[in-house]
């Protein structure tokens, strides 16, 4: 075989690989959306799930997913931005910084099931809370924190040094400079990163199995008292999320319409993640445009 032929064959192989990757994605999306959207209706989204009968919806799971996501972000974003500021602005090269960097690396590479086990140990057993929304949110915070730290650190580092110097040269303290000049400039990138991370959190299940649990108590959406057992807002109640629901109906469920429910739930899950992605891009470019606008 001469080299020309080999080259042509190789090119063909690479194109085939690209086509395989693209078809995997197209196939997956086609399957999820075509099979799933049939089952997605207002009724499906707003009626409670059933443990035994067919025709259950995903109302509570959907609410739980968003509620846990919100709580997770409320904890993880400030913490992660703080960590990012530390790494970008305060950390001096040396042992301590290396240790923190290793910690972030370790956290980022922990399997989510291991984080779930840690959550079970800390937030379920040690605290005595049992399976709770808060425990789930804390476990997801551990899961999410390294991403937010990295995103914030990168965003802060990419703020031009000029701006920081300008502020400091005017006799403004470092912390005030960070608050009023650096963070606002880094904000679009941090926001974009946080929304992308939200997509990941939204679809996560393994870390929640042993922390937020596999069940949801009967909820009364008219009850807004966060300390009441039937209130959806109560953070000390167990909560099955959408992703966990897909897993549990498939592996331990008794309902006859497993496939319909999972198809519908999977479509909702993937669409939500897709929306998070598009939102991140859209907001990112919007703010970018607004800041660099030359009107």
């Amino acid at each position: 075989m001469n080299s020309k032929t080999a080259d042509r064959i190789a090119t063909g192989v690479f194109i085939t690989i690209a086509i395989i990757i693209i078809s995997i994605l197209v196939g997956l999306f086609y399957y999820i959306l075509v099979n799933g959207l049939k089952h997605v209706s207002l009724d499906f989204l707003t009626s409670p799930s059933s443990n035994v009968r067919a025709g259950g919806g995903i109302r509570d799971q959907l609410f739980n997913s968003f509620y846990i996501l919100l709580l997770t972000m409320l904890i993880a974003v400030p913490l992660g931005i703080g960590g990012g500021i530390y790494m970008a602005e305060y950390a001096k090269p040396g042992k301590v910084t290396d240790i923190i960097r290793s910690c972030i690396e370790v956290l980022a590479s922990l399997p989510s099931i291991v984080i779930g086990m840690f959550g079970l140990l800390m937030f379920v057993n040690l605290t005595g809370w049992g399976y709770t929304i808060l425990g789930g949110a804390l476990a997801l915070t551990v899961f999410n924190l390294p991403v937010i730290v990295r995103v914030s650190e990168d965003a802060i580092r990419s703020v031009p040094r000029d701006l920081k110097e300008a502020s400091l040269a005017l006799g403004i303290t470092r912390w005030h400079t960070i608050k009023t000049v650096i963070l606002p400039s880094a904000f679009p990138s941090i926001l974009t990163g946080a929304i992308l991370a939200s997509g990941r959190v939204f679809g996560e299940a393994a870390a929640l199995l042993f922390t937020a649990g596999l069940s949801t108590p009967r909820l009364d959406y008219a009850n807004w008292n966060p300390f009441s057992d039937t209130s959806p807002l109560n953070i000390f109640r167990p909560a099955e999320t959408l992703a966990v629901h897909i897993w549990s109906v498939n592996t331990q469920g008794l309902i006859p319409d497993v496939e319909e429910v999972s198809n519908g739930a999977a479509a909702v899950l993937v669409l939500s993640v897709l929306i998070f992605n598009l939102l991140a891009r859209w907001i990112g470019s919007m703010i970018h445009k607004k800041i660099t606008a030359t009107k």
Binding site: I24, L25, L28, F29, I32, G199, R200, F202, G203, E204, A205, A206, A243, V244, I246, W247, A266, L269, V270, V273, L274, F276, N277
Partner: peptide, 9 residues
């Protein structure tokens, strides 16, 4: 997009 698909899916 592949990254975005949750593992349960």
């Amino acid at each position: 997009l592949l990254v975005g698909i949750p593992s349960v899916v």
